[in-house]
């Protein structure tokens, strides 16, 4: 049985097709990365799968339960940490986790034990009895993650869990997520706009753009699908870019060329061998060449190939106390 399954899942807001008929089939115990830039439909998908939004069309099952007909049972099976850490600044961390456990029907010693255990896991024991309003951004994210885990869910939804965090806090979240999957067998549905995060955490990955899934596979499979080296040639004169792509496209061994962000992105089987020919061809054509870089395909190249544009990461304004 799939941990998460969806067919034709669709959400319209008036005329806007936020999610446009996506299919999902996610195996239990895996970390599934849902990669896309802001506004691509990631959060709307997660809100439908977690029963916060009703789909306009299509169907989905989470932990074998229909998200429309068995919504309350779905909520018992899942833990969710949304993009904004949904916390109450007036409560203490311990009070928030205790209330969360009570709402999931946990009582007595079991509840107290679980709250203490989670506070230790997310390194918040010392701050447990302080008002959440005094926590830093990283501490709030860790508490939010603990709240999502309080009832030992089978499936964990994380909506951009590290957006806006500093590198140390980000590393801490990655460590927790990896441990949850490896040691507890929890299925993790992770949306992200960070390529590194997707590459490092996800066993399986889907790229979403304008509400549609446009590529699917493991990060390694996706990169292998490109199957070539990538030579990125910066062309300082913007009006020469189309001509540069044309010239480079005729160089022997070049499989295809894309233009992105003022550069010709050239896909070739062996970048080291091809780079001299590419530069010479451009020089012969009278096109000035800037920096030239050779790389193995990255998820950014996968994203570029699938969407025709680089992933634009939008960082929120740093919040007060954004450190761990």
């Amino acid at each position: 049985m799939s941990a998460i399954w969806a067919q034709g899942l669709t959400k319209h807001f008036d005329e806007v097709r936020a999610v446009d008929g996506i299919d999902l089939d996610i195996a239990p115990g895996t970390i599934f990365g849902f990669l896309g830039q802001n506004g691509s439909g990631k959060t709307t998908t997660i809100r439908m799968l977690t029963t916060l939004l009703r789909p306009t069309a299509g169907s989905a099952r989470v932990d074998g339960l229909d998200i429309r007909d068995d919504a309350r049972a779905v909520r018992r099976s899942i833990g969710v940490a949304l993009q904004e850490a949904g916390l109450d600044d007036v409560q203490t961390g311990r009070e928030l986790l205790t209330l969360q456990a009570r709402l999931f029907g946990m009582g007595g010693a079991r509840r107290r034990g679980r709250v203490d255990e989670l506070l230790a896991i997310v390194d918040l024991e010392d701050a447990a009895d302080r008002a959440i309003g005094t926590y830093s951004g990283g501490m709030k994210r860790r508490l939010d993650l603990a709240a999502a885990l309080v009832h030992r869910p089978d499936i964990l939804f994380l909506d951009e869990p590290t957006t806006g965090l500093d590198p140390i806090s980000r590393e801490a979240i990655w460590r927790y997520v990896t441990r949850l999957s490896a040691e507890d067998g929890i299925t993790v549905f992770l949306t992200t706009q960070y390529l590194e995060e997707a590459d490092r955490l996800a066993h399986d990955l889907a790229i979403i753009d304008e509400g549609r899934i446009i590529s699917r596979g493991s990060p390694a499979e996706m990169k292998a699908r490109i199957g070539t080296d990538v030579v990125t040639v910066q062309v300082p004169a913007a009006d020469a870019l189309d001509r540069a792509a044309e010239v480079v496209g005729d160089v022997a061994g070049v499989e295809r060329v894309q233009i992105a962000d003022g550069a010709a992105v050239v896909y070739v089987p062996d970048g080291a061998r091809a780079v001299a020919g590419i530069v010479l061809a451009l020089d012969d054509a009278g096109i000035e060449v800037g920096d030239v870089a050779i790389s193995r395909p990255s998820l950014d190249d996968v994203f570029l190939e699938a969407t025709g544009h680089h992933l634009q990461v939008e960082e929120p304004q740093p919040a007060e106390g954004g450190a761990a």
Partner: peptide, 16 residues
């Protein structure tokens, strides 16, 4: 305030 902070969603995501 609960809605704007996302805490209302957190409560809606429980089986309560």
């Amino acid at each position: 305030t609960d809605i704007q902070r996302g805490y209302f969603d957190k409560l809606l995501l429980t089986p309560a």
